[in-house]
Amino acid sequence: MNKKFINQNRPERRDAAQNRQRILDVAIKLFKKNGVEQVSMNQIAIAAQIGPGTLYRRYHNKSELCMDLIKDNIDLLFNDIDRYLSDNRETSPAQRLRGLLKLFIHFRETKAQLLAGVESTPAASNNHTQKSPIYNELHKLFVTLFEEMNNQHTTDSIFAADMLLAALSKDFYRFQRNVRGYSPSKILEQLCLMFSKR
């Protein structure tokens, strides 16, 4: 599958590439210091010493900027998922679902802030038809596994994939971790109990 979530083949002028790198360097420093959610696009533009128009021409919102910062890690995640699913073709779909969830939960834990930034696009929060590329790719994988479990193609598999991704979303996951006090392994166990017996 080898997903590429940002077009890396587009040629870039030297000054544009320098601006891009300056934006990314400044953004990652501000994010580490203050947290992704507390940093505005205007703060990034000021710290990078560029005009807001220059910033918004490159990144329409903070979600796109976070995606650029995290894209290599996302590619690695989906390469790991591909490898896992390929190496475990003979195991049950429920077991493969567990392995996939384990990989994603580890990714969410290690890249929490940037991943939350990717998920925080204003369009996605106001329009539920627009989802991140990560959501779309995971949704396809979950639907395939649920269809295997049911041994048929049904809308139930689509609904189950939507519900599972809702449970893995930043707000729900953060609530389970910080308010309920569940560990990542406990969340994994609970999700497997809920979604593997279909």
Score class of each variant (00 low, 15 high):
131 K>L: 04
143 V>P: 12
166 A>F: 08
123 A>Y: 14
156 D>K: 10
159 F>A: 09
146 F>S: 05
148 E>H: 08
139 H>I: 01
112 A>S: 07
153 H>T: 14
164 L>E: 02
105 I>D: 11
166 A>W: 05
141 L>K: 14
132 S>Q: 08
107 F>I: 05
143 V>Q: 03
108 R>D: 00
151 N>G: 03
148 E>Q: 10
142 F>I: 04
121 T>N: 15
163 M>I: 07
133 P>S: 12
160 A>M: 06
115 L>T: 02
145 L>F: 06
118 V>P: 06
158 I>A: 04
149 M>D: 01
139 H>D: 04
126 N>S: 11
142 F>N: 08
107 F>M: 06
105 I>L: 15
105 I>M: 08
122 P>Y: 15
111 K>I: 00
104 F>A: 06
150 N>D: 11
145 L>N: 07
114 L>C: 07
121 T>K: 14
107 F>Q: 05
157 S>I: 11
147 E>D: 04
121 T>L: 05
135 Y>D: 01
138 L>K: 13
122 P>S: 02
114 L>M: 15
115 L>K: 06
124 A>M: 11
167 A>H: 12
106 H>P: 04
106 H>Q: 11
151 N>R: 11
144 T>A: 13
104 F>K: 06
167 A>W: 15
130 Q>E: 05
134 I>Y: 14
133 P>I: 15
121 T>Y: 13
120 S>W: 12
158 I>Q: 07
144 T>L: 10
163 M>T: 07
137 E>M: 04
151 N>I: 00
144 T>I: 11
111 K>Q: 10
131 K>G: 00
145 L>C: 02
141 L>C: 09
153 H>V: 15
140 K>H: 04
162 D>V: 00
153 H>F: 14
162 D>M: 04
110 T>P: 01
112 A>I: 03
121 T>R: 10
166 A>P: 00
119 E>G: 09
144 T>H: 03
105 I>S: 01
123 A>F: 07
153 H>N: 10
148 E>M: 14
151 N>F: 08
125 S>K: 15
152 Q>M: 01
143 V>A: 11
123 A>W: 14
165 L>E: 13
119 E>S: 03
130 Q>T: 02
159 F>L: 10
137 E>S: 05
131 K>C: 13
147 E>H: 14
106 H>G: 08
163 M>S: 03
130 Q>N: 11
112 A>K: 09
165 L>T: 13
137 E>Q: 10
124 A>P: 02
113 Q>C: 04
155 T>R: 12
128 H>K: 15
109 E>V: 05
162 D>K: 08
139 H>R: 07
135 Y>P: 02
129 T>Y: 14
106 H>E: 07
114 L>F: 13
123 A>I: 10
149 M>I: 10
113 Q>W: 03
104 F>N: 00
143 V>E: 03
139 H>T: 01
136 N>Y: 06
122 P>L: 01
137 E>F: 05
131 K>V: 13
145 L>R: 05
138 L>W: 07
109 E>N: 05
103 L>S: 09
154 T>D: 15
131 K>W: 14
130 Q>F: 10
105 I>K: 12
144 T>W: 02
167 A>M: 15
160 A>P: 00
137 E>P: 01
126 N>P: 02
109 E>D: 12
131 K>A: 12
110 T>I: 06
132 S>D: 05
165 L>Q: 14
143 V>R: 07
134 I>A: 04
126 N>R: 12
142 F>M: 11
164 L>I: 09
